[in-house]
Design a protein around this nucleic acid. Sequence first.
DNA 1: AATAATTTTTAGATTAACCTAAAAATTATT
DNA 2: AATAATTTTTAGGTTAATCTAAAAATTATT
Lengths: 220, 220
Amino acid sequence: MTITTAEENYLKAIFKIAEKEDKAVLTNSIAAAMNTAAASVTDMLKRLAEKQLIKYEKYRGVELTEDGNRLATTLIRKHRLWEVFLVEKLGFAWDEVHDLAEQLEHVQGEPLIDRLDNFLGHPRFDPHGDPIPDAQGRWTFRQQVRVSLLQPGEKGILTGVDDHATPFLQYLDQIGVALGIEIQLLDRTEYDQSVQVRISGKTEVTLSEKVAQNLLVIKG
Amino acid sequence: MTITTAEENYLKAIFKIAEKEDKAVLTNSIAAAMNTAAASVTDMLKRLAEKQLIKYEKYRGVELTEDGNRLATTLIRKHRLWEVFLVEKLGFAWDEVHDLAEQLEHVQGEPLIDRLDNFLGHPRFDPHGDPIPDAQGRWTFRQQVRVSLLQPGEKGILTGVDDHATPFLQYLDQIGVALGIEIQLLDRTEYDQSVQVRISGKTEVTLSEKVAQNLLVIKG
DNA sequence: AATAATTTTTAGATTAACCTAAAAATTATT
DNA sequence: AATAATTTTTAGGTTAATCTAAAAATTATT
Ligand SMILES: [Mn+2]
Ligand SMILES: [Mn+2]
Ligand SMILES: [Mn+2]
Ligand SMILES: [Mn+2]
């Protein structure tokens, strides 16, 4: 049984939606995530169910089977390892790698990804701070908190971003925010919930609530 | 106008056939090279002609246009650069990389291949000794000769192999033949045209005519 | 509970890339 | 030149992946 690129992409989308909300994943959420018509999703769900990669009940939504989960996890592993390669080895910026990784993740061949992992030194996080499951599909969890939830005086190390879109990442570059830096919350403006923060113990900048919500730190 | 993976593969096949024989490339040669039915080739030729990537005259065969030639050249460049990456960086053997490169060559994105080329140090030849066209599509030519055509006493440096199949490459590994080694022809047996050669000034082995025909050296 | 709104599925098409079998064109042989 | 053999194209189908529009099922509201 062979699995297509389209099928892989659906499995990944289902995995990511299920990650957030723990109910069954509905047709429309998938359609939204994949930018396809709901009818196309129904079509694909039938095929995936046929291949035992999801459990599908008409009108009730879907759930990944163990096989489906394993495939989705591997795909995410591949995507994130390629992103590390593109940034660490080829020198791409963190806002430039997603679309390339979307293609590279579908290249088939187990030895390839194992050797790539080895070449990169078994990285546990990708350039956006997202965890990379290991060859056995195990995840690394971290206790992260949004900058928007810090109390004045509290600080943390930036370990992730929630929004991966180019304009956001380039904005962060511009104000000197990168993974690994220290962010201290100085003050919060009640009116719009914007926050003043100190970056790396030096620069002070104001971040909108939206920006602060997309920055994830480990406190301390 | 977007180009599909299948289209790219046809262009490459046409390029490679045209490389050997200088007449127009016929439907059946393409069908043989691609392992598809002749009718499928005709189908594709119409599409490629529609896109101005080939000049196609019914029953008369095809020729690449300038656009088609450029795309085929780029595809070969990508294929061979990825092969260098897989061998040099990931440690694959030279007989293991072709199928992976067949997939990787279709990953879209100009900056990717330029950065990869740079990362690899602008290699001019792939792991099988085949030339890698540069970013402008220029080829490096070398004056190579088959070991089967050497005179007794003559020697050369192995710079290429004509057959890329795994069994052949593994056989070469086994007898200690690799790119860059010196091969000296000691004697030829008239009966079956097999040759005795000295490898790296040390080992002596007998090569069948078929093997000797697939080894390319630069004399001297 | 009946009706309205929303979500999901079905029905029917389309496109790329393949296929087999039959027809047409070209090339080789008598 | 006529016939036979070969090559190529056309005709007609299939499958995966998409779409729009209509029908059916579920959920929300009166
Ligand atoms: Mn990504
Ligand atoms: Mn990422
Ligand atoms: Mn190859
Ligand atoms: Mn090669």
